[in-house]
């Protein structure tokens, strides 16, 4: 029960963190010029959005859950199980970022999720 709870916390907070950061970066707009000064300006602009800070906070929570899980569960269980975040991430992107998920993208994500599990436990 404790392992399942922390695994869910890891997957959900990590995915929610990524979605929040993505929202902030989309609000900043596409960075098309890769000069260091332009990149720095864009990153500083991203820090002005609350969703960036929420995302960083959620990532810290995910990292804490990951470390806590590793203190009692095997890494060979934790890493493949966290591949669930690929599927959860795609659902989140559809619901919260209004991305269009085609059949090919869904199928690709399922292939990758199973592939990650096979590589890690193989």
């Amino acid at each position: 029960m404790r392992t399942t709870s922390f695994l869910l916390l890891l997957v959900l907070s990590g995915t929610a963190g990524d979605l929040s950061i993505t929202r902030a970066m989309k609000q900043v707009g596409a960075v098309e010029d890769f000069r260091p000064s332009t990149i720095l300006r864009s990153l500083l602009r991203a820090l002005q959005y609350a969703s960036m800070w929420i995302g960083v906070g959620l990532h810290a929570l995910a990292f804490g859950s990951f470390l806590a899980l590793l203190s009692w569960a095997d890494v060979s269980f934790v890493v493949p199980a966290s591949a669930l975040s690929y599927a959860v991430g795609v659902v989140g992107a559809k619901l919260f970022l209004r991305e269009t998920i085609t059949f090919s993208r869904w199928a690709g994500v399922l292939f990758i999720s199973f592939g990650v599990v096979f590589v890690v436990i193989g």
Binding site: S104, G108, I112, G115, F118, V119, G122
Partner: peptide, 30 residues
């Protein structure tokens, strides 16, 4: 590299190719 790991590598490669053929951006958020 075990056969199971090779099959994982193949699945991931196929999955990345499938996702790679989809449009890079569809979101209207931002």
């Amino acid at each position: 590299v075990s056969p199971l790991r090779w099959s994982g590598v193949l699945l991931i490669s196929a999955g990345v190719m499938m996702v790679g053929r989809t449009p890079v951006r569809t979101s209207t958020v931002g």
